[in-house]
């Protein structure tokens, strides 16, 4: 086994909340030594079988890891980038044999589809979009939505990705005057797309018609909100947000995530729940991910905290290990794994 293959290392036992819920199963080591930026999980067809694979991103390379045995992964393929560094992996729900990445420095400059063809006929990297891109999200049915700034306005565009990685279809959504910060699908509503803006508004589009349906102010206390999850229930829209600019201390503790409810008909909204750190823990949101009823966040303290959104409280804490702070955390889209990464390229699978 080369050093590129996975290994399980000794990790200190945690004296934290419900540590048993999180069990370290393996560690993926990046031998290149370059700065690690993101991780994701995807399905890939290997010898005719769809396998749950892990995708890791360093500054200038993205790697696909296939499962070997229980809790073991082997690097299968790498895509290399020479000019523009990788900013993030763009997870594509419900797809197989396709990875999308955003490249850039401060802003996204390119979005590329990564594929793995053995013949020389097809390219293994295809440029999907370029420009000053502020936000991107992978949607179901091989679609990708992005917003980019032109000289005079903002463009919101959906591309449908063909089997060869090219863009099969392009559709434009009605533009918004304000810069879009994040996009989110509305669970259970295939035709609804939500966006948060830097001016503290939430906007909703109809994906089928491209119509901008409503702009809803959510107040100054939700500045620079990132939307992690949205769902509609009983005529109301529930949205899970995080706030990189949130104050570190509130009377109830340090809020990291927040659930708000909006009535899309009246555009009136209110807070429902604050997801705070346990007493004695410091930090605010740096980076995080929400899947089903679980939220995970890397905090400014270097710790990862996990909340059960239904219970309303923090259920686990992963302190920095090997003297290295955590730098990103993602829920796996293919199984019940939590993928946690450090800057030096080490990825821990829980």
């Amino acid at each position: 086994h080369s050093i590129e293959q996975t290994e399980i290392t000794d990790v200190p036992a945690y004296d934290t909340l419900n540590p048993g819920n999180l069990q370290l199963v393996s560690k993926l080591k990046n031998p290149s030594g370059s700065c690690s930026v993101d991780v994701s999980a995807t399905w890939w067809e290997i010898a005719g079988v769809k396998e749950p694979c892990i995708v890791t991103a360093c500054e200038y390379a993205v790697s696909l890891w296939k499962p070997l045995d229980i809790w073991q992964w082997e690097k299968m393929y790498s895509w290399h980038f020479t000019e523009i560094p990788v900013l993030q992996i763009v997870p594509m729900p419900d797809v197989c044999n396709l990875v999308c990445v955003a490249l850039g420095s401060l802003e996204i400059r390119e979005i590329r589809a990564l594929l793995c063809f053995s013949d020389a006929k097809n390219e293994n990297q295809v440029l999907l979009n370029s420009g000053n891109i502020q936000a991107v999200l992978g949607l179901t049915k091989r679609r990708l939505v992005s917003s980019s700034r032109t000289l005079c306005d903002q463009q919101v565009e959906i591309v449908t990705i063909a089997e060869d990685g090219g863009s099969k279809e392009k559709q434009f959504l009605m533009p918004v005057e304000e810069t879009i910060q994040t996009f989110a699908e509305v669970q259970g509503m295939q035709e609804a797309l939500l966006g948060t803006t830097i001016m503290n508004n939430i906007v909703i589009w109809n994906l089928k018609t491209g119509q901008l349906l409503k702009k809803m102010p959510i107040g100054d206390s939700y500045q620079a909100s990132i939307c992690h999850k949205a769902y509609s229930e009983m005529g109301l829209l529930f949205v899970v947000l995080s706030h990189p600019c949130a104050k570190e201390k509130e009377p109830s503790g340090s809020p990291v995530f927040q659930l708000i409810v909006i009535n899309p008909k009246t555009a009136l909204s209110m807070g429902v729940m604050l997801y705070c750190l346990p007493q004695g823990q410091a930090g605010r949101f740096l980076e995080g991910d929400v899947k089903d009823n679980f939220a995970a966040a890397v905090l400014t303290s270097g710790t990862i905290a996990i909340w059960d959104l239904l219970l309303g409280h923090c259920t686990a804490l992963l302190p920095p290990i090997s003297d290295q702070n955590w730098s990103f955390v993602k829920w796996s889209g293919t199984d019940s794994h939590l993928l946690a990464g450090q800057k030096d390229g080490n990825i821990f699978v829980y």
């Binding site: 909703i204 018609t209 509609s232 005529g235 008909k265």
Partner: peptide
Amino acid sequence: CNQADLGPISINWFEELSSEAPP
């Protein structure tokens, strides 16, 4: 939270907003 503070609610809000919004 108090639902009354959010105003009248419609289960079919998406369809209604789609029919009201400019094409």
